[in-house]
């Protein structure tokens, strides 16, 4: 298992210019929901790409359109294959979600600091996830399941907008069937054909089984969801420094030069996106940020 950053922050591939993306070919594509697709990419060039750790992201380039920061959602054990789950939310992401097998896109990175998995070893691990917060945490699950004996209880609470917005549906069913982790799913609203939980994901926290004095939590999703969930975990006795959040801002360069992703004193592409709640709690409350 890697450390927080497999490649030093600011590392890149693609030659001399840190801005130049390397060509990657789409080798597999899955439609997750109406507006979200998962692309598996492999480098066109034979040279192996740098490794990555769960929680890092790439800058993906849609040719002639532009770039977007997309979290890596595949397994670190297969570093040549770079998997990304992308929701169509603008011109760049719309073009990326429409990419077909065989198409070539650009890729820079990996960038940022990932989830501190080593800190969770020997402890209970909680993942609290909202919406497209699951893709950045899926590599964590892969790593945990590959080294399951290193962790105590593993609890996941995943919330989505509706049942139709759940990504990785088949994988979730497999995770839910496992005896060595507990995977709860809730949706904000549903029709009568849904017999699962309805509400918001932080509601599941009182039901999660863990020892607050020896647990680490990773939170990823909309900021308001992370804020409520972090507070619910603190209310259950967890220390703020054991709760980690993945922050999202407008990443541009990816290596701490342009300042677009500044959040308080942090440049999230370089210092984050994963940060301890104890470091960012005060900035959550600032509306200007």
């Amino acid at each position: 298992m890697g450390s927080e950053t497999a490649a030093p922050p600011g590392s890149h591939e693609g030659g001399a210019s840190p801005w130049a993306p390397a060509p990657y070919r789409v080798v597999e594509r899955a439609q997750e929901t109406a507006d979200t697709a998962t692309l598996a990419l492999e480098p066109v060039e034979p040279a192996p790409p740098p490794g990555f750790v769960p929680g890092q992201f790439h800058m993906l380039y849609a040719p002639d359109i532009g770039e977007a920061a997309i979290s890596i959602s595949g397994a670190p054990s297969d570093p040549r294959r770079r998997v990304h789950t992308i929701r169509s939310a603008g011109r760049v992401t719309d073009a990326l979600t429409r990419a077909r097998v065989g198409d070539v896109v650009g890729l820079r990175g990996p960038y940022g600091r990932g989830w501190p998995l080593r800190e969770a070893e020997g402890k209970d691990l909680l993942l609290v996830v909202g919406g497209l917060g699951l893709p950045p945490l899926r590599p964590v699950l892969y790593e945990v399941l590959a080294h399951r004996d290193r962790f105590r209880r593993v609890e996941i609470a995943y919330g989505a907008r509706t049942p139709k917005d759940l990504v990785y549906y088949d994988e979730i069913q497999a995770w839910r069937a496992r005896k060595d982790l507990r995977f709860q799913v809730t949706v904000d609203r549903a029709g009568v054909d849904w017999y699962g939980d309805v509400g918001i994901v932080s509601q599941r926290i009182p039901d999660m089984r863990f020892d607050p004095s020896s647990a680490v939590a990773f939170l990823c999703g909309p900021e308001i969801m992370m804020r409520g969930s972090a507070q619910a975990l603190v209310d259950r006795g967890m220390s703020r420094s054991s709760v980690y959040v993945s922050m999202e801002r407008n990443m541009k360069c990816g290596f701490g030069q342009c300042g677009h992703c500044q959040f308080g004193p942090y440049l999230l592409c370089r210092d984050g996106p994963v940060l301890p709640y104890s470091s960012v709690e005060r900035y959550f409350a600032l509306r200007e940020l």
Partner: peptide, 13 residues
């Protein structure tokens, strides 16, 4: 509070 967050549709784009 749950209803407020649901109305906000926080998972929407």
């Amino acid at each position: 509070q749950i209803a407020r967050i649901q109305v906000m549709d926080i998972h929407g784009v």
